[in-house]
């Protein structure tokens, strides 16, 4: 029996089988970077989920007798200009950030897959039209575009989802389109067609599972970018609105106070950086096994 020559996808395929859980675990174990990143992401997501159950102070409760208090007993990460507990606010702020990471990226992913799928399978005119629209979006700085959308729609988390997704879908569309175009030319797709599978069956059963992996790998990177974008929009007061906690908003509130109360900037700064790095680690780790591996040789980077 020949050993694997080419490892085609992350865990040898996306088809669901009774052993799928086992394969995912084996894949995670053999990819340490991914394992570490996934555990850290689960810790952050877990904290965001259980934050209401934690014995924390109210993130909105002001205490003007204890403003700009340094980290210590009672306030592990200190207090801000209004005497609010920074630890509590940092933990509560993980919720909108992760929500933006998940929802805005999912919206962009779905729109991108729909547009990319349509472009790759829908004929020359549809392809040219959709790709020119995608190019138009890509040629515009995403953060400026998002600011423009927020300026029109008004601030608020729901509009942040939309603004980020609007400028996120073209990369997914381009990635999925090129992946489908490459997969469409594979022998197994032609073989399935020759042996009687309908166009729809071939797309769903063979092209989609083989084209989606690079797109999913990019999803983690896009989520990291979305979290940063949310922090940026909140920083300029277009995202989460006061007094709700947000990492970007907390950084904005720390402006001019760094020498006096550095903890106000360090805590949310570290939170947004670590979360972004974790998502980037997941994206990089997931992308790595997709590089073709020749048996007995090292994996190409």
């Amino acid at each position: 029996m020949a050993r694997p020559g080419i490892i085609p996808t992350i865990w040898g395929g996306l088809s669901v089988s009774p052993d799928a859980g086992g394969r995912v675990w084996r894949g995670l174990r053999s990819n340490r970077l991914l394992l570490v990143a996934v555990i850290l992401a689960m810790v952050i997501a877990g904290l965001a989920l259980i934050v209401p159950l934690l014995p924390l102070q109210d993130p909105l409760a002001t205490d003007y007798d204890h403003t700009l208090q340094a980290p210590g007993k009672g306030h592990v990460l200190g207090t801000d200009l209004h005497g609010r507990d920074v630890l509590s606010r940092v933990l509560w702020a993980s919720r909108p950030s992760l929500l933006v990471g998940v929802i805005a990226t999912s919206l962009a992913l779905l729109a991108g897959i729909a547009a990319g799928g349509l472009a790759s399978m829908g004929g020359r005119f549809t392809d040219a039209f959709l790709m020119r629209v995608a190019d138009a979006f890509l040629s515009f700085p995403a953060i400026l575009g998002a600011i423009a959308i927020m300026a029109v729609l008004g601030p608020g988390l729901r509009n942040v989802f939309f603004a980020i997704a609007v400028f996120g879908w073209p990369v997914f569309a381009r990635l999925f389109r090129s992946s489908v175009l490459a997969t469409r030319e594979m022998d197994y797709v032609k073989a399935a067609r020759v042996l009687g599978a309908s166009g729809t069956t071939v797309f769903i059963r063979h092209i989609l599972p083989n084209s989606i992996t690079p797109v999913l790998a990019y999803t983690a990177l896009a989520a990291a970018a979305a979290i940063l974008a949310e922090a940026g929009l909140s920083f300029i007061n277009l995202g989460v609105q006061r007094p709700e906690p947000s990492w970007g908003l907390m950084l904005a509130e720390s402006r001019g106070l760094f020498e006096q109360a550095p903890w106000m900037a360090v805590a949310p700064g570290v939170a947004v950086t670590v979360t972004t790095i974790i998502f980037i680690m997941i994206g990089s780790a997931v992308s790595r096994p997709m590089a073709p591996v020749v048996a007995g040789e090292g994996r190409s980077s």
Partner: peptide, 20 residues
């Protein structure tokens, strides 16, 4: 196709879906 005419290819490994 497939029902009345079947076809076999030279590169059978390439003709099989790697993810299925």
């Amino acid at each position: 196709r497939g029902a009345r005419v079947g076809m076999i290819f030279q590169d059978s490994r390439g003709a099989l879906d790697p993810t299925m």
